[in-house]
Design a protein around this nucleic acid. Structure first.
Lengths: 253, 253
DNA sequence: AAATCATAGTGTATAATTGACACAATTGTA
DNA sequence: TACAATTGTGTCAATTATACACTATGATTT
């Protein structure tokens, strides 16, 4: 929660720069050590949790706004961002309304506005992100998907909807390019799919299918390190990957 | 294009009632005599074509606004409406901006606003609609999908995107309930799928698959009339249909 | 009344895909 | 040098998709 002064300053800037009534919220999925993570913000001095979001500049394309917001929070650029739903329940920002309504008259109070929010999800390489809190957030951090805080507003719904959309996307588009490191092994990629789908897949069948999509290149060098056979390294064949993004696959999981 | 007086009146009402910067556009698909149709509006005295759209009341849920708009245009109520994308290019309503910018000062000119539009598509029974032009539209009518007018704004893009979304939906959800009459024959339903997908399907395989979904009930009475064997009539098993809408199917076409 | 036409209903053989499953190979460690 | 861990790969069976042809029925024509 903001102080009165912070609120007033913020509202002034906001009204000047942003399109009213519209926000963007991002569900940023990361993947690390076999667990799906989500980027969450915690507000200074409060036990208030949000998804990273923000507002759209008055003349900014939506896509660009989503990218800017993502970049401000994670340092990541040029990432696959997928618009998945608009949330517009008139009551959805009630909590903010209640929180701030007495601190500033409605006319100049940005947070007494009704907001529709456009949901985007992103898939990023956990290792390459630098979660950076903004001026309001004390912490910006990764949380396991199965150890989430209680979100404010409708952000729990947004997250759930994003996850459903992601699972659906798995059925007709390739994923992984922004989520995996440049090079990865087949078992690592499989783990990603298993994590998103929350179920075990057969190693051999997964490999056959995955290779069948034709979006992977096998590298020359295997990965060494474990007390076991060295797995092959793969990377995405970007040309085919992008084509598949546009065209879509056939079957599903 | 509106006259100055019309514009002024309209802007006053709009500013009072509607959420600024946001609109809804509906792609209403109908199906008749084996052709997929789309509902289009033509503006009075001009050769200007649009998809039916409108604005959202200040406290109205998005879904409800879409339904209201659809009802105002077609008389149809409680129809499957699917949100599919938000279009937000800052230049997308440039034509309107140019058209109206000199007629009213920007402050009170609704159309100098930037608008994001939320795209919905609907599937309706062609026969039960009563396309009704609103105050600005001279004609509101069905047009064949392959005989479309040149749309204003980005409405051609919206239509194309809706069609893509519809084709995708075919792969994991049942369709047809709002698009077909209460009772229909298997060949009629097949024709719908063929039309949407724009390709021929095998009669026998279609039937097997369709019945496999378990969303159809065979009626007792066949349909008579043609100089041929009377086909069975089917209707949707709403309970299973709704379940399938939520759950989704497996494979694709 | 019989023949014909148009279109519906249904089944089957073959090919392709998916799912289940087991064994051999490699690397590091004990 | 044996062992533990994990990878790579192949095959068979079951399922699913595809291609295809004949029979049935109702209206129309002769």
């Amino acid at each position: 929660m903001l102080t009165k002064k912070e609120l007033k300053d913020y509202c002034a800037t906001a009204r000047e720069n942003y399109l009213p009534h519209i926000s963007i919220d991002c569900v940023v999925f990361g993947f690390h050590e076999g667990v799906l993570k989500v980027l969450v913000l915690k507000v200074k001095n409060e036990n208030e949790w949000y998804l990273p979001g923000g507002f759209m500049l008055k003349k900014e394309p939506i896509e660009m706004a989503a990218n800017r917001i993502l970049k401000e929070r994670t340092g990541l650029d040029e990432i696959f961002l997928q618009q998945f739903h608009v949330f517009g329940d008139p009551e959805r920002s009630k909590e903010h309304f209640e929180m701030y309504k007495d601190m500033l008259p409605a006319k100049e109070n940005w947070f007494t506005n009704r907001f529709l929010t456009i949901g985007y999800y992103a898939l990023v390489d956990f290792c390459e992100t630098n979660p950076a809190p903004d001026q309001f957030a004390a912490t910006c951090s990764w949380r396991d998907l199965n150890d989430l805080p209680e979100f404010k507003l409708d952000h729990a719904l947004i997250l759930k909807t994003a996850l459903d959309a992601l699972r659906l996307q798995l059925n007709y588009q390739p994923i992984g390019y922004n989520l995996m490191p440049k090079q990865f092994t087949m078992p690592e990629l499989q783990k990603l799919y298993e994590t998103i789908l929350d179920k075990k897949l057969d190693r051999r069948n997964f490999q056959r299918r995955m290779l069948g999509f034709g979006i992977l290149k096998r590298e020359d060098q295997p990965r060494k390190g474990g007390a076991h056979k060295a797995p092959y390294l793969y990377s995405f064949d970007l040309e085919n990957y992008d084509a598949a993004l546009k065209e879509g696959f056939k079957g599903g999981w």
